[in-house]
Design a protein around this nucleic acid. Structure first.
Length: 470
DNA sequence: AAAAAAG
């Protein structure tokens, strides 16, 4: 049995056709600009053909504002939540602006290999009506396999930073021909490790190409980066109240650390989701959880950055082909991946970075569908949950599973608790022995808040605070 | 603190 402690009545009790239709319309209005069609945006006929063949009529809001600006040759810094068609927003103007034979006219940088494959495929599909070539380049595949494809001089290259730099150094990928440079998932690209690569690649383009940066969130650091590479940029910001779409039903479940696997198993068995992605914080946990589920006869597959690339590609193919029901993933899969039919996202651990939460749950409820996002939160992880709620600007309700039977407390945890209790008792006993000196009336008067000045030096206090946070 | 990306 499932009970929700949400104060508002559950949506399931209100499935009248009118309300469903209203909700659908509101959500469409939230994402799409129904007052416009792609034909209004100034795209050429051969590009429009690819769009109509893909079944699109109205652009999303980010597309409606980004496409005309990019077509006009402007530098664009665009923000929109996940799943609102950002790839097409920068891909369509590229397809429109680039002539066949314009070798290496555009370079698109993405943070993961899987995204390189996906973004390249999406632009290929959109450009089906044009003779342009799109090539993904990324690490983990042999350079010798890529060389002949690069020699043919594709107009658009989509790549991960490491391999792009490698190919450039081998003189197989020029920078000086690039007229439009795109940074996808900029917030992720500015992480330590990527930042310098990005600077090297963009800085290597002495001709100062038109730049398009897209990101789910725009931080001051992103603005700074944009200012240093862009001339007179257009900033496109979505005015949404929340960073997450309403179609995802989010909730959190209170569960002790040692009960998380059991709870995960309980959810997968009792709620029978169609296609689930389980996100874990470490590669090790991904492997452990996958093995655990396999032992319980659940056909779960793992994906993380330590698997060989062919294995990663194989798992992604299975996922896209609908031949997989549970994917256990590291944050490798958190961003951008657009796979149809992911009905559930489970956060086995909440991420330290709340932006990652927004990206993770954005894997579900794509293309106008609904989705469910559960987060397993142990009592000591409450602050992580609060961080996510604050960033996404939503209140996540708690879900209680009354028929879930918690496991026994592991021996080491029990021992630790007992030890902590003993320490407290010992401290109380010593406090009684050394009576605190009475506080003088003058001292308290200087601190109306009732705080008694401490004898501890300020520097030591800082140190203490710091150690407590870690 | 971890994960990703060049081998």
């Amino acid at each position: 049995m499932t009970t929700s402690t949400d104060k508002t009545p559950p949506r399931e009790n209100d499935p009248s056709p009118e309300s469903v239709a209203t909700q659908a319309r509101e959500e469409a209005e939230e994402t799409f600009d129904t007052s416009k069609t792609f034909a209004d945006l100034g795209l050429p006929d051969d590009v429009l053909k690819g769009i109509t063949e893909s079944g699109f009529v109205h652009p999303t809001k980010i597309q409606a504002s980004l496409i005309p600006a990019a077509l006009a040759g402007r530098h664009v810094l665009g923000q929109a939540k996940t799943g609102t068609g950002k790839t097409a927003a920068f891909g369509l103007p590229l397809l429109a602006a680039i002539e066949p034979g314009d070798h290496f006219a555009s370079l698109i940088l993405v943070p993961t290999r899987e995204l390189a494959i996906q973004v390249a495929q999406e632009i290929k599909d959109l450009g089906a009506g044009t003779p342009l070539h799109v090539l993904p380049v990324y690490g983990g595949q042999r350079i010798t396999a890529q060389a002949p494809k690069l020699e043919r001089g594709p107009e658009i290259v989509v790549g991960t930073p490491g391999r792009v730099m490698d190919l450039h150094e081998r003189r197989m990928l020029p920078y000086d021909t690039v007229r439009v440079a795109v940074l996808d998932e900029v917030d992720r690209m500015l992480d330590i490790g990527f930042r310098d690569d990005i600077r090297k690649i963009l800085g290597g383009m002495k001709q100062r190409p038109q730049t398009i940066f897209v990101s789910a969130t725009i931080s001051p650091e992103i603005e700074k980066l944009a200012r240093s590479y862009m001339r007179d940029p257009v900033k496109i910001v979505s005015k949404e109240k929340s960073l997450t779409v309403a179609r995802v039903k989010q909730s959190w479940i209170n569960v002790e650390r040692w009960d998380k696997r059991k709870m995960l198993h309980h959810l997968l068995v009792h709620e029978t989701p169609e296609l689930t992605v389980v996100f874990c914080r470490t590669k090790r946990t991904v492997d452990d959880v996958t093995k655990f589920l396999n032992r319980k006869d659940i056909a779960a597959h793992a994906i993380h950055g330590d698997l060989i690339q062919s294995q990663r590609n194989k798992v992604m193919e299975r996922l896209r082909g609908g031949k997989l029901s549970v994917l256990v993933a590291s944050d490798l899969a958190a961003r951008g991946l657009d796979v149809d039919g992911i009905s559930h996202v489970i956060n086995y651990d909440l991420p330290e970075d709340p932006e990652v939460y927004v990206h993770r749950i954005g894997r579900t409820a794509r293309a106008g569908r609904k989705g469910v996002a559960w987060s397993l939160v142990s009592p000591d992880q409450g602050d992580l949950l609060t961080n996510c709620e604050m960033l996404a600007n939503i209140e996540i309700p708690q879900q209680v599973y009354e028929d879930f039977v918690p496991g026994t407390v592991p021996a080491d945890v029990r021992a630790e608790k007992e030890l902590a209790e003993k320490r407290v008792q010992a401290r109380e006993a010593s406090m009684k022995r050394t009576e605190a000196p009475p506080v003088k009336a003058d001292d308290t008067a200087a601190f109306p808040g009732g705080i008694v000045p401490t004898k501890m030096p300020a520097r030591r206090m800082q140190g203490k605070v710091r150690t407590r946070r870690r």
